Simulated assay, not measured.
Amino acid sequence: MRIQKAVRYRLEPTKEQESLLSRAAGCVRFVWNRALAIQKSYLESGCGILSYVDMAKCLTTWRNGEVFGFLSESPVHPQQQALKNLDRAFQEAFNPANPKRFPVFKKKGRNDSLRYPDPEQIKFDLHSRDADGRHRLARIFLPKIGWMKFRKSCPIGGEIRNVTVRRIAGHWTVSIQIERVIFPKAPQGEAAGLDLGVREFAALSDGTFVEPINAYRQWEARLARAQQAMSRKVRFSHNWQKARIKVQRIHRKIAAIREDFLHKSSTRLCKSHAVLVIEDLEVQSMSASAAGTMEHPGTLVQVQSRFNKAILDQGWYTFRRMLEYKTEWHGVLLRILPPEGTSTTCPECGHEAEANRPGLRKWFQCVSCGHREHSGTVAARNLLKRAGHARLACSAA
């Protein structure tokens, strides 16, 4: 099986290289905005839009001219890639079956990135040593940027397809998309149902639990202090920019902790089970605001707000997306079932009633047979029973 994945490293550019990267990202943003303005003018005049080939000819004219000659000082392939992205954005926006959002102009300092689609232009020096014979940071060569050091935290491990350089919270990172062949092993373990929750991140049908990491809750107080400090600064001043980067780095830290937890948890579950059954949760509707409108104001807004924050802190959607491709990599069967009635149905006698779990309590107790068990485990057992896999060994898969 051929798969594509990305590995991300942190770059260690010099001051001069940071200036070159910022200038190159600014040129990409300029090309996008100018091409978008031209396309919008064509649309307003009723002439349709220009194709990518026509816009690429315009880019060549800009780079060879005097007015926009500064574009030639930065690499051309990321600028051409910006035109390709814009052309694809227009095609998706005008798709009658599933229209996407109309492309918008890019702002400075937001999502600064460069994509090099041609891997032949990228060079690596992964085993360099200094004058004393000691290992030093690995290096990557980017056109018109030069050799830059990066922290090689894990092996690249595949055929390079493209490279994306991005600025995240004041730090430059490089994401390398690779393609490689994997041979899925026979899945180990039995079938398991998973019920995602807030008190416990996941309850398994065998009675075990995956404890949550609660990354946002750990950093919430520090983030609030940083946001308050930024609000006291003059907007767009030098001190405001520094405070904004501090807030961004805390957000990035929270996201990194959550992502690391979700990756490790999903990989561990895929390696230890042959079948996984999860609920088809509508996270967007579950975490919607309860404020209501002026005519019909909502109730228990603060309680729902805290519950929404706890839901979003778990990363359920990202966890499901990870399971979808990791189960395929490991040869594990993934079943996604509707969640209706899973936490109010007794797994022993099958009696379903809201009184079995009044007020969404932690413990489930059947009013018919008296069975008492953790509500998450009950939901996971019901999911497994619905999937028709009461006990499934690896050999049966």
Rank of each mutant, 00 (worst) to 15 (best):
H374T: 02
P184D: 10
L43C: 06
H296D: 13
G292L: 09
T318Q: 15
E18P: 02
Q188D: 00
D112H: 08
H351S: 06
S113N: 06
E354C: 03
W219G: 00
Y317D: 02
N85Y: 07
R320N: 08
K40L: 14
Y42R: 12
D54Q: 14
K362W: 08
K106L: 07
E282W: 06
Y9P: 03
P117Q: 11
K5D: 11
L20T: 04
E373F: 08
S395V: 07
L300R: 14
V7S: 03
I257M: 14
E328I: 02
S205F: 00
S285R: 12
K326H: 05
P119C: 13
R101A: 13
D260F: 06
R361P: 02
G157Q: 10
E220P: 00
H296N: 08
L384F: 04
P184W: 10
D206E: 02
E354A: 15
S231R: 09
E66D: 14
L137Q: 12
D280M: 01
I213V: 11
G370A: 05
I122Q: 11
K40A: 05
S237T: 03
R136N: 01
D118L: 08
V28W: 02
A215L: 11
T60V: 13
F150C: 05
R134S: 04
Y216P: 01
A393R: 03
S128E: 13
S19R: 12
R321H: 08
L300G: 05
A396R: 13
G158I: 05
G376T: 02
A131D: 10
C47P: 00
V28R: 10
F201L: 05
H351D: 10
R2D: 04
N356Y: 04
W32D: 11
C346M: 12
A256S: 11
S19F: 02
I49H: 01
I245P: 00
K309R: 15
L312W: 03
G292R: 15
R361W: 01
